[in-house]
Nucleic acid binder design. Sequence first.
DNA 1: AATAAAATAGTACATTTGTACTAATGATAG
DNA 2: CTATCATTAGTACAAATGTACTATTTTATT
Lengths: 208, 208
Amino acid sequence: MIDTKEKIRNAALKLFNEQGIDTITIRHIAKELDISHGNLQYHYKNTNEIILVLFKELNEGFSRLFAQQENMEHITFHHFRTWVEVLIEQIWHYRFIFLQFVEVTRRVPEVKIFYNSWDKSREEQLLLVFNTLIKEGIFRDDIPPYIWKNLVTQQYIMADFALSHNEIKMGLKGKKAVQYYGQVLFNQFYPYLTAKGRQQADEHQTAN
Amino acid sequence: MIDTKEKIRNAALKLFNEQGIDTITIRHIAKELDISHGNLQYHYKNTNEIILVLFKELNEGFSRLFAQQENMEHITFHHFRTWVEVLIEQIWHYRFIFLQFVEVTRRVPEVKIFYNSWDKSREEQLLLVFNTLIKEGIFRDDIPPYIWKNLVTQQYIMADFALSHNEIKMGLKGKKAVQYYGQVLFNQFYPYLTAKGRQQADEHQTAN
DNA sequence: AATAAAATAGTACATTTGTACTAATGATAG
DNA sequence: CTATCATTAGTACAAATGTACTATTTTATT
């Protein structure tokens, strides 16, 4: 017998992504899988439990992604660009969380705690990447620290809410959304680039 | 007798801001006002109708704000800074919309249509401001148009979702939130500034 | 003052949801 | 083989919600 718990998570993720967390109950998920809601309840007491598990899944994906970046001693611009896109792919996969982020944190307070305990290190890591790129002459060296810190905040707000913007305004699906917002995020760096940095960025753009 | 419709809108706004749109029903709003829900229903059929009306209120506030900016032939950096803060004040006042923006548009499709028909002109207007600031030597003149366009997108994503970020991460209230995110939004301009622009920005900061 | 219209209170009911519970079935270890 | 535990199906019920409806009171108009 295949893992029922996993099937439930997959069905829940699908329904949450399609219809949002407020309309979906364990009864809907059970119907989608053609099992009784009593059975589903045996595995997950309610939707909030499933939301938390899915958030933890996302969290682990992110952790792997960040660890992968830590192991690089030499970051190229191109590398960084690809890395950002993989990040947004993850976000797309679990998009229901980001599309209703405030609600998710209200309904499942653990999500908020998780998120906050975690993104302190995200912040420092991104600052480190910036510093590396400054040393390599790709980013300008005449920008004060508080502006770099501000840029980190901007980047995370943009990453977390890009898909909400997409939902309301652009309506792009899958790969197209990922590419578009990857570009938006990346263009944020443009005015921080040196002449050398701009050259590298242009090369990357024409390469696509 | 004071306008009941207005009292309803105010109570609804308060409850929506405090508890979100999913938990609040017309029965809750009626209880808050000590009137029967039958009476409330007479004025507004359901919560979605109230949400739409509140969104239209916000919309009109924005329109006034943008019109006010259009009438200025000479934009100073300081002026622009204040203007941005008034904008965020409005957003704070109707924060439930932005905290659950995707949900609001799903429940009340008219909101999406309104928003989109409207922000084309927002876009062009902000680009105009940028152009003015370039001509006045405050913004750099070596930035390609697609980057300016990207900056507009960034600014609107940040403005629309700053308070969601606040709700999840910072937890600032009222004036403090408005000031903080006003600053975050404004710092986005830093790397676009010329030497002259930076000087003006510093003056403003020390003036506070 | 009489009458119509607007506003308010309250009732009624079908539907949905969260939650707890029971019964049946299947799997597994000794 | 059977006793135990895990899994599944299904029932039951209180509470909440959306919606429609009636009855009463208040306000405005002539």
